[in-house]
Computed example of a mutant assay.
Amino acid sequence: MFHDQSPSVLPEWKKRAPYRIHEPENFEPIYTANCHCGRVKYQLSRREPLDSKLCHCMTCQTQHGAPFQWAAIFHKTDINFTRGHDGLEWYDPSTNSLEHNLPCKVRCSHCHSPIMDEGRNMILIFPSLVQFEADEDKAKFRPRCHIFYGQRVMDIRDGLPKWSGMSGESELIEDSPSEEVHNLTEERKAMGECSQK
Results as ranks from 00 to 15, higher is better:
F81A: 01
K14L: 11
G168S: 01
Y19G: 03
I21K: 08
L98C: 12
S128L: 09
E28A: 13
E174W: 06
E180Q: 06
H64V: 04
E171Y: 12
M58L: 15
L160S: 03
D4G: 11
L50C: 03
Q61K: 00
Y31K: 02
D117Q: 09
I147K: 02
C37R: 00
A72F: 00
C145E: 14
P24E: 03
A190W: 07
N80M: 00
S167G: 08
E180V: 14
H100S: 10
P93D: 10
L98H: 13
E89T: 13
H112F: 09
I30K: 06
D92A: 11
F126E: 07
E28S: 13
L129W: 04
V181I: 08
D155L: 08
L88G: 04
E28Y: 06
E171Q: 09
P24Y: 02
G168Q: 01
I30Y: 12
E193P: 07
S170L: 02
P161V: 02
R39G: 12
L184S: 09
R188K: 13
R83A: 10
G165K: 02
K189S: 12
T32C: 03
R39Q: 12
L50I: 08
E89I: 06
H182S: 12
D78K: 00
E99M: 06
I79F: 01
M1R: 15
E174M: 07
Q131E: 07
R83C: 07
E179P: 13
G150E: 00
G150Y: 00
A134Y: 15
N26Q: 10
S178C: 10
D175C: 00
K162P: 14
D135G: 14
S52M: 00
C145F: 05
D175I: 00
N26V: 04
D51T: 15
E169D: 15
H146M: 02
C55A: 01
R120L: 09
I30W: 04
C37Y: 05
S94D: 15
M58I: 09
E12K: 06
A190H: 06
P143F: 01
Y149P: 05
Q69I: 11
C37F: 05
Y31L: 01
Y42N: 03
T32H: 11
E118A: 05
P67N: 10
R157S: 14
S97I: 05
M154C: 09
R144S: 09
H56K: 03
S8C: 12
E23F: 10
M154I: 11
M166S: 15
R83G: 12
D117F: 08
S8T: 11
L172M: 06
H36M: 14
K162T: 02
D92V: 08
P24C: 01
R39M: 12
C37E: 05
Q196W: 10
V9R: 08
E118Y: 04
F68A: 07
S52G: 03
F126H: 13
R157E: 13
G119A: 05
T32N: 11
E28N: 08
K105I: 14
H56C: 00
F148K: 05
H56V: 00
S195C: 13
S195W: 07
K41H: 06
V130K: 02
C108Q: 04
V9Q: 09
E171C: 08
S113W: 04
D137I: 01
R120Q: 09
R16S: 14
S167M: 15
P7G: 05
N101W: 10
L10W: 01
E169R: 06
Q69V: 14
R188L: 06
S178G: 07
N26P: 07
H36F: 15
E48Y: 07
R142L: 03
F148Y: 09
